[in-house]
Design a binder for these strands. Sequence first.
DNA 1: ACCCAGGGTCATA
DNA 2: TATGACCATGGG
Length: 221
Amino acid sequence: MIESIAEVYDKLKLHYPPQRWWPGESQFEVMVGAVLTQNTAWRNVEKALDGLRSAGCLSLERIHQLLAADLALLIRPAGYYNLKARRLHNLCHFLLANGGVDVLGEWPTEQLRRGLLGINGVGPETADDILLYAFRREVFVVDTYTQRLFSRIGITAGRHDYEALRRRVEREISGGAPEFAQFHALIVEHAKMICRKSPLCNECPLQLECRHGVAIASSTH
DNA sequence: ACCCAGGGTCATA
DNA sequence: TATGACCATGGG
């Protein structure tokens, strides 16, 4: 039986290679990816990012200038393109209205987090993606995989409670931003593995999320 | 033909 | 506070 969050991290590190996660040419590209990947497979996000790049539009100024309709066309493979075009514009507006990415880099983490959450289209996970992977702040990202995993193991009582879980991981895992990033990446890697290869509890690689013989890979299984 | 993916907002009750 | 509808493409 798994008892602590640190124990989960240790097991994941033992069974999977170190993950290189969220490669991006710039902080801004990471932020764009964070919006585009909302409820969307990453491979589709890559297509959209490539589209923006090859159009020479993967920059704060260019996206800000684009008409929503044109932007939507460029990010079409990422899905929800009309919605996400608006959200990207909202993000750009926030960045420009506050002096740009470098100036925001000087903000304290809590202030920056509140600012990001104030953007229409940026919720808790997207904000924390940006804080951790674009600004390298000591913030852990709680995504649906994380919630499902911890809920199954019995670490959480199965409640949503995003903030509580985030704080708890940040308190129990030491090492700061690099460790938070690695932990999050390993959770996603693990989720992909069990989803494809071992949907059943008894076959899962780590015997990690086993509980009452129920599959964890998908809530609908 | 279905299921779901590295969510978030808004309208209802 | 808590559900439900909605957004939409692409791969399994």
